[in-house]
Write a protein that binds this DNA or RNA. Sequence first.
DNA 1: CAATTTCGCGCC
DNA 2: AGGGCGCGAAATTG
Length: 602
Amino acid sequence: MYVLVRQTSNGELLVDTLDDAGLPIAATRCLTLTEFRLFVSSLESTTREPATPRWVWEDTARIYSVLLTAGIRVQRCHDLRLCHVILKNSALTTRSELALASPGPWDVASATTSDQAEPRATLFDFEAEDDRDPVSSAGAAESRTAREFRRQLDAVASATEPGRLRLLLAAESAGALVAAEMRYAGLPWRTDVHDLLLTEELGARVAPGMRPERLELLAQRIRLELGDATLNPDSPQELFRALQRAGLAVTSTRGWELKKLQHPVIEPLLQYKKLSRLLSANGWTWMESWVVDGRFHPDYVPGGVVTGRWATRGGGALQLPKQIRGAVVADDGWKLVVADAAQLEPRILAALAQDTSMAKAGRGTDLYAGIVSSGVVETRDHAKVAMLGAMYGATTGESGRLMPRLARAYPRAIALTESAARAGERGEIVTTRLGRSSPIPGSGWQEAQAQAYDPAATAIDERRARSQARDWGRFTRNFIVQGSAAEWALCWMAEIRRELRALPAPGSRQADAAHGALGQLVPGAGPANPGTTRGRAPFDATPHLVFFLHDEVIVHTPTAQAAAVAQIIVTAAETAGRLLFGDFPVDFMLTVATVDNYGQAK
DNA sequence: CAATTTCGCGCC
DNA sequence: AGGGCGCGAAATTG
């Protein structure tokens, strides 16, 4: 069963119950949030999967944040905006009505800021009456939203491999739920620990715009070594000129270039860059702007990257430097279960290519170590560099030299990456395991290629065209692996989320009920970080996902349930592997750590 | 002066 | 010396 939900401008919800074909089976109802909460709980508590309804809406980021704030959680959804993008571009649905239609409102770039729980104007900015499609075959009452949903169902049903797309759309939508829930719950963050870490590294906190002591001392050493008393080491231009004057033949001020040089200024300069980065990216200013009531609430953007990876907006959540991960501390009586998929992308590649030799190298062990013990290369480092080179398209250097050996040992895997690269060089699209396709190269790219075939083309034209073609080939080469890995990760998270919700509470029912009631009714009740004043949502008292980073998750859990959580995460990885690759014998190994703070994990 | 681009570096 | 990002400060442009 599907239930289509639309927000009106006055904060009420329009609800349509739909059959499996997406056609309404009852009149539209208009519910307040309170009425809707009762509606959801009546449907979700009495029915078990797969009878549980799938909630269909335009934009999870927008509507679900409102629901979460009202204490409403759902099990499954279909995010029309995210699914539209997939179906519009997928090689599996090219002949569908949806893909063939000229660009419409569903194709506009999402400007969703999901900035807090206010119901904003929706895509169509509709009042109840405006959202009607007069030409709909289902009758004048069918909304444009419902019509889009039917278009999506049709596209899937007529697809080359509907099963894969169905899984992809479900996983993408589940990811959107997870993203909204993680943003809502937030990552436990101890500002006092963060401050301590910063003070150890940089010196005591100073006013914004000032340099903390250790940074100032380093700046003075740099000025001394370069003989420039007024040098501002934050200015690449000034620094570049000062280095030139000191006789250092640099082409930039990048750290990796400086590392190769011998000069007394190099050591303090590299140190300065590192600390300066810490201060500006994750210093006290960051802490004040992004940590609220002991939680860091990044805005995750599912589908924010063309490959299907997530992006984030605000706070740089996908780049939390290792230096400050110690500030991510579990609440008293709680633990963090940190899990990351070991060598995820090579394993994905092995399965994509059905390369049993490569899969075997990773069975029950570190995949790179397995490549070494198979005698392909001598060291783990070589195995890693070679594999990364194969997936990213390295042609030169050490990685390039090792490639032939990899190609001999794993011909199927390497052939797959090569064919993806060749397709991209020809301007063709490539497609992930579940059916997400790469974009068509832009008009500039295509013109440059066409121009190179013109009889009047110069050698420079040809060289530029070849170089751009290779660039796009590296992109498509990586796309199939990165994109399929993102799909695996979505399935993994969706499974974790589902199993966490089904986890029975430990101990007596009374204890659990008391805990839940306290958490719900008493602001600040329950385990809390120092400084936590926010009331806790009901589900915040049970294990829940708090962080995701491409191939890594963190679950915040009461200590008593940590072991069960770890088991759920491991089992979910196996399930995700089967969902994507069926019986193909590839292991998706995890490193799992149950810790008090994120800094202790690996 | 504000808006936009570039640089450099953090993460996977 | 290769893929994907986001961000802050400096540098440049309008």
